[in-house]
């Protein structure tokens, strides 16, 4: 089990600060690293980098499709591109370009989609991605990282520098609470067991990991002990860890800031249905579009709450007790 430092307190650093710092470190370590944005440097607070590293940082203007193609071409010419836009524009708008130019052509391209799901808040339904993980998951050999912690983001940005194919990070720009201590080592395909218990296993990614931890704490106070897992990468999924915990608790709750169609819940259900079927409750957005609102309002609207997780855990335990 991982040691965690989650306290619910303010994070040491916001994600946009971590992104800038990490990209700068990458430029210094490796002159072939490139960062391309589509007119959202002001939002990601990277305009300083743009001025400081003219051979590494490029702006395509509002051209997401072209940005993906340029990244593929730059990789062919020997550069290691990282591209950023808001999640809907980084994925939904240019999915064919990602699939063909980056995925099928085996280019090494890292995509950072910021403000996924309800993190889009006041930008509303047009900007709210409940489908981005579903889309990228279907691309062969792609990697999907639902960022739950700044240290995870920093480390995996670096570790995926040479990774072939599409690597997709979905992350808020700010407000992500610290979960992991600085010495934590993250690997693609390796999940983290953050809390242990024998009643139910909660598998939660991205901004919902801290919510799952809060739910686990509340359940503990009710006398119930749950596993909490952060898969780190929704694809490839740590099937070994998930199967082991499915065998141990015989019941799973998945929790995600994404549609229950095609995301983390689907991924877990897919593997367990073939290897070790157990009852699964999926907490997430149910076949719905996004809308305007602050995070608290949206969490209520889409049932992404501590209370919902607790209710689903109890539902599964009820099923176990009644033999259903």
């Amino acid at each position: 089990m991982e040691r965690i430092i989650y306290t619910g307190g303010k994070p040491e650093k916001e994600i946009f600060e971590v992104f800038s710092e990490t990209m700068e470190e990458l430029f210094r370590e490796d002159s072939s690293v490139a960062y391309i944005d589509a007119d959202l440097m002001a939002s990601m607070r990277t305009k300083d980098l743009w001025e400081k590293y003219p051979k590494n940082v490029f702006n395509t203007g509002i051209q997401e499709a072209n940005m993906v193609g340029v990244a593929g071409g730059m990789n062919l010419a020997g550069l290691k591109p990282y591209i950023h836009s808001f999640a809907p524009f980084a994925v939904r708008r240019c999915f064919d370009q990602i699939y063909v130019t980056a995925g099928y052509a085996h280019k090494s391209v890292r995509i950072i989609g910021s403000e996924p799901g309800i993190c889009a808040t006041d930008n509303g339904g047009t900007h709210m991605t409940f489908e981005d993980m579903a889309l990228i998951r279907t691309i062969p050999e792609a990697c999907v990282i639902d960022v739950s912690d700044a240290k995870m983001f920093r480390q995996l940005l670096k570790k995926t520098k040479e990774r072939k194919g599409v690597t997709y990070f979905r992350t808020p720009r700010r407000g992500l609470l610290d979960i992991y201590p600085s010495e934590t080592v993250f690997e693609v395909g390796k999940g983290k067991l953050l809390r242990e218990g024998n009643d139910v296993t909660i598998i939660s990614s991205g901004i919902m990991v801290s919510t799952a931890l809060q739910a686990a704490k509340a359940l503990h106070e009710m006398g119930l002990e749950v596993n909490v897992v952060d898969p780190v990468t929704v694809k490839p999924l740590d099937t070994e860890l998930i199967e082991m915990l499915a065998r141990r608790t015989k019941a799973i709750v998945t929790v995600e800031n994404h549609s229950i169609i095609g995301g983390l819940g689907s991924a877990v259900a897919e593997i367990l249905s073939e290897s070790y079927p157990v009852p699964i409750e999926r907490v997430g957005v149910k076949d719905q579009f996004g809308q305007v609102g602050n995070e608290e309002f949206l969490r209520e609207q889409y049932s992404l709450t501590i209370e919902e997780i607790i209710e689903r855990v109890k539902k599964l335990l009820n099923g176990k007790n009644t033999g259903r």
């Binding site: 490139a34 490029f58 499709a65 193609g69 071409g73 730059m74 010419a77 020997g78 063909v100």
Partner: peptide, 27 residues
């Protein structure tokens, strides 16, 4: 064959990326 194409419109972007990548590397 340098680039995978067929979904029309993407190749010119790829060509831009190659040309830009070569340029910044002084090639």
């Amino acid at each position: 064959i340098d680039a995978t194409t067929g979904s029309l419109g993407q190749g010119l972007s790829i060509a831009c990326g190659i040309a830009h990548g070569l340029k910044v590397q002084g090639k």
